[in-house]
Design a binder for these strands. Structure first.
Lengths: 146, 146
DNA sequence: GTAACCACTTGCATATTGCAAGTAAAAATT
DNA sequence: AATTTTTACTTGCAATATGCAAGTGGTTAC
């Protein structure tokens, strides 16, 4: 179980988003789940930012409690756990991609190619759909072999 | 001066955004500056979330250091300080509004009217421009009377 | 049957936060 | 001119959260 209380800031839309997303580790876990196809505890743990094990467990529990991740035993291997991004989590893709466009503009050392921002600005819906399909593919490849 | 180190996570665009935005108080200060026309220390302090004075001072310093806010003595009253949102801060408006749309969809107790999400989805550029003009008006009304 | 894998939990030192009180400069009031 | 008020902070300290290292308990591979 999670140590700290879950931020439950309803009402104001910015505050509600802040309650769920304005945490460094939650933010990066969602990046890994939505953009990099990560699903298991050890995949999240191996991200280059180096989260520690207790914090990762805490944040996964929080993201599950706020309805962003769906925790399930891996059907292929019962000692493994998968955290699938929910519809609610997928729905932040437009905002997440918009933030990434912002970063490519304002971080002079950004890794993102110029083409990324251009593609998103040209057709944001198509870009979101591309990521959604990637998520579908990853999830199907896990759940399919039930 | 700020106690903690400034997060300086360049490279990955999500991580860069997280380094600046993934903090509850920074997030809410930017909301107040970009959406509610707040500029002074005491205006930010009086937000309903109730930030404490030392944290507010720390976050204002961080947002200044990361180029999000421009600290200036109020030309109308030298005992007062104004924090103006920079171009870099204004540029997160599309992402911020997209997050708010997400909140109106997923927070069942949201304060935002249905029309907000609809207006943003119909014409995001026009919505961003509307907020930009509001910011211009506030800043001009302070700087104009120099 | 044993070793390795995987998802955590626990204990403890350190860092951050929140609260209350205090300070210092400028502005308004008397 | 002296005093009070406004404004933007700073300081000290208790409570909370984080980060690290080590440990635990099922599952799976060999």
């Amino acid at each position: 179980m999670s140590k700290g209380k879950i931020q439950d800031w309803h009402g104001c839309p910015t505050r509600y988003a802040a309650g769920i997303l304005a945490d460094k580790w939650c933010f990066l876990i969602l990046r890994d789940a939505l953009l990099h196809g990560k699903r298991t505890y050890s995949e999240f743990l191996n991200s280059p930012e180096g989260v520690s094990t207790n914090i990762l467990a805490d944040r996964l529990a929080k993201l599950e409690a706020t309805g962003m991740l769906d925790r399930q035993i891996d059907p292929r291997k019962a000692s493994r756990v998968c955290y699938f991004p929910t519809r609610k989590a997928r729905d932040i893709l437009p905002a997440l991609l918009a933030l990434m466009v912002w970063s490519t503009r304002h971080d002079q050392f950004t890794d993102a190619p110029e083409s990324f921002a251009q593609a998103y600005n040209d057709d944001p819906v198509a870009t979101v759909n591309w990521y959604e399909k990637e998520i579908d593919r990853v999830d199907a490849s896990i759940k399919g072999s039930e």
